[in-house]
Design a protein around this nucleic acid. Structure first.
Lengths: 225, 225
DNA sequence: CTTCGCGAGTCGTTCAACGATCCACGCTAG
DNA sequence: CTAGCGTGGATCGTTGAACGACTCGCGAAG
């Protein structure tokens, strides 16, 4: 369709293609377990097979795609163990980021903003928006560590988690009950009581983990095998 | 040298090529800042340009290579800020892994083994070996968290750090004074005193960071600009 | 001494091709 | 009727060549 690769944007074609596929994934238009055949997808995206393969490399290293050698690449369908692993890493990173954050850290503004927006969206009934804002909230917490590497790692984790949510198509409502909790955390942070905020986060994670596991079990019962 | 890409091994050619380049990097045969010209390197490694480009993607995402759009890829030369960032992340990960480790964790065997081997190699005067064993030691600590994602992240960090050491060609002796400290840490772990072990690690990091920074300054003075 | 333009060197991307590998299906033998 | 055993089709893995686009250094013009 687009003979000219002048599709605008900033990065190179490979990166843009990876982005496009990422969108297809979180939109759920590519289902977990599904195979991504190279010629077909390349044609659909209007890029060459080589370019597509480079994009696959990126997404594989992000844990979103999985390659079976000589058989093709498939959308990764995370199992329980992997979801738990993601939460384990999140717990470590977020809690330490919060615990070690400087009082009056400039990044706190972003944290506040995310919570505020989430409250507004919840009152408007926009659950999808609440979910997005919740992710922003946690990313802002990690940003308090002032570590580019940690931030990037976390972004990847969030992408994986998103895919996991798609996998067990249990969407936004998972985030709803936590808005008030987030508000409490941000209050603690504004007060400079980082340790208590971290502890609150810890409780958050235990609860959130339980919720997710329940959703998994429920899904497994509904759609067995 | 190797016209036939039949170098065997397990993974696909792209992965093997990435490994080969990684080796060139930590061997110091590719100096930081140096450009990697695609046709030349492809010929040298006996792979096609497309394959090489896929390998580049991997290494770029690992932080070892850097791409200047439309100019080529270069060996990443980490600056002070980045080295500090690596240490920041290491501190968070390793300390939490240790703090949360179960007593009598099976992984402790690997930790003990690394320290024992380091002591032996030090007495034999094999500083290079001591350095390697030190890396193994820290990787074993991270493994105590039982998190594949954390382990993989840490492996990447170590690769980056290795590159950093090559950058300021200050090699193994950085690891020497820490062997005894490591021994103390493993003793604490065997005792089930995880908190104290984590605290010891914290001290280790502050000191190690200082040493590295000193080496950087020294390097900057020796070989300015 | 500064600026402009040009040419060489590379990158970015595509296309076509070919052997290798895997899988499903149908056929044969027991 | 069931268990193997080809065999063909689909797809991957990798290559080589091609061509426009971009960057940079260098020499000429002002």
């Amino acid at each position: 369709m687009s003979p000219r690769p002048a599709e605008s944007d900033g990065a190179d074609l490979v990166e843009r293609t990876a982005l496009a596929i990422r969108d297809l994934l979180i939109d759920g238009r590519l289902r977990p377990g599904q195979q991504l055949v190279e010629p077909a997808l390349a044609a659909a995206l209007g890029v060459s097979r080589n370019t597509l393969r480079e994009s696959f490399r990126i997404l594989m290293h992000e844990g979103l795609l999985l390659r079976h050698p000589n058989r093709g690449v498939f959308v990764h369908a995370p199992d329980v163990a992997e979801i738990l692993d993601i939460y384990r890493v999140r717990r470590i990173i977020e809690e330490q980021a919060v615990r070690g954050a400087a009082p009056k850290h400039p990044g706190l503004a972003a944290v506040r903003a995310a919570v505020g927006q989430a409250v507004r969206l919840r009152d408007a009934g926009d659950w999808n928006g609440v979910g997005t804002e919740n992710m922003r909230f946690h990313a802002a917490l990690v940003a308090l560590a002032d570590s580019p590497r940690l931030a990037e790692l976390f972004a990847r984790l969030q992408a994986e988690l998103r895919l996991a949510f798609v996998t067990l198509d249990s969407p936004e409502y998972l985030h709803d009950p936590f808005v008030d909790e987030n508000r409490r955390i941000v209050a603690l942070l504004d007060d400079g009581r980082m340790g208590e905020a971290a502890d609150a986060l810890d409780a958050y994670f235990t609860r959130s983990e339980r919720t997710v596991l329940a959703a998994i079990e429920r899904g497994r019962a509904t759609r067995p095998r």
